[in-house]
Simulated assay, not measured.
Amino acid sequence: MLAAATTSLPETPGGERNWDYRYSWIRDSTWMLWGLYSLGFDWEANDFFYFITEMLEDGSDIQVMYGIGGERELEEKTLAHLDGYENARPVRIGNGAYNHRQHDVWGAVLDSFYLHTKSRDSVAERFWRPLSRLVDEAIAHWREPDRGIWEVRGEPKHFTFSKIMCWVACDRGARLARLRDAHEQATRWQEAADEIKADVLANGVDDRDVFVQHYETEALDASLLLIPMLRFLPADDPRVRATVEAIENELTEDGLVLRYRVEETDDGLTGEEGTFTICSFWLVSALAEIGETARARQLCEKLLSYASPLLLYAEEIEARSGRHLGNFPQAFTHLALINAVMHVIKADQELVQNATPPGARPPHERRPTL
């Protein structure tokens, strides 16, 4: 799976936010596997899963991204002799994020393995040692700052989402250990998960009970819409609702979600950017999770209306014009689309079931009257 088939299509016309996305990001893997399994593409899901496992088996540190042939060196270069779309510069090949410290990667891998394994009730012996190493790496490093899911090129921070994904690594690791009857590891990893959760709840929440981008700030971050989907907290927790509603009200333009406010985030770059389409689809799923079914459906329908003539999406959308920005088509966006639509369908089905009298057939199952 490629993040996109293109490089250097600008996130801001004429700006510098131009990146090479022709690589496979590990963080996309959980969503890819979830989407493939949900849609019945088990063979393709298994095939992609084994691509991930090959990256672990040589004992080297897990990277955030790889070439599609498993290449590890993705040195970033600028092609000064070229102009990009509408004269965008610079044109880049390679991606310097490949050697970033991004702490969400351990949780992404463990969540992928848990998703793959929980229906099989076992973990293959060949995978257990590298998986154990990843959980222990998350435990060893979760207290350190990193560059976060958005791969900021400013100073590393204690990003709340990165801490939550370290919790995911420990939580899923403990669950997998219990499947193997590895009780000592399960206990140790569960204790680490509990410690991380307590730290996040103490330092990653502001006075409004809203989760913030990183410790010691009140800035919002759209990645925190994933909290209920990751089961870090239940969807009915007041802090989850407060976070979803704060992002919906304060981190949007014309109802579409920004990943963060550039003026509040040291990402090492200049200029504005469009709304992140993946984040808008995350908001659909989050609204459905907290029971705001009508708002979820309304936003989902709005987003679907922004699709290109090919029914595909770029990375970003300019809210006022609907113009697509950034690399195209953006795989991560479409994985969030699948998740959002499945959330809306499930919510609609639950509404129908709740409104159907006992013993009666739901409307979609009834035969038409002749």
Results as ranks from 00 to 15, higher is better:
E316L: 01
F41S: 02
R101M: 12
T160A: 01
D42A: 15
C170V: 09
N354L: 14
A3V: 09
R27C: 13
T243P: 01
C279E: 03
L287V: 10
F276R: 08
L256P: 00
A177W: 04
I68D: 05
R153T: 12
I149E: 08
A294E: 07
Y98Q: 13
E216D: 11
W167H: 02
I338P: 08
D194G: 15
P358K: 13
Y23Q: 12
M55V: 02
F232I: 11
V205M: 12
H81M: 03
A286T: 07
D209G: 13
R126I: 12
Y85C: 09
G148V: 12
V210Q: 04
L56K: 02
A186I: 05
P309R: 15
A307N: 09
E350N: 10
V152G: 05
H364I: 05
W150A: 14
R153N: 07
T187C: 15
P358E: 11
A3E: 15
L310S: 12
R361V: 09
I93G: 06
N327I: 04
T217I: 00
D348Q: 10
T277G: 06
I227A: 05
A169F: 05
V123D: 03
E292A: 15
E245Q: 14
Y37L: 11
G70H: 14
T78S: 09
R175F: 04
V152I: 15
A296V: 06
L33K: 06
R320E: 09
G59R: 02
E86K: 14
I247S: 13
G70A: 14
A235I: 07
L39T: 10
F276V: 02
P145L: 06
E350T: 04
Q298T: 14
E44T: 05
R208M: 02
S285R: 08
P362F: 10
D209I: 08
H158W: 03
R17N: 14
D136T: 07
E54R: 15
G94L: 07
V344W: 01
K346S: 11
Y313Q: 00
G326V: 00
T293S: 13
E57F: 07
R129T: 12
W282M: 13
V341L: 12
A202T: 04
S122W: 10
P234F: 12
G40T: 02
L82C: 06
K77D: 06
D146G: 12
T6A: 10
S285H: 11
A347T: 12
P362S: 11
S285K: 14
E253R: 09
G322W: 08
I52W: 06
A108T: 04
T270M: 10
W282N: 09
S308R: 03
E301L: 10
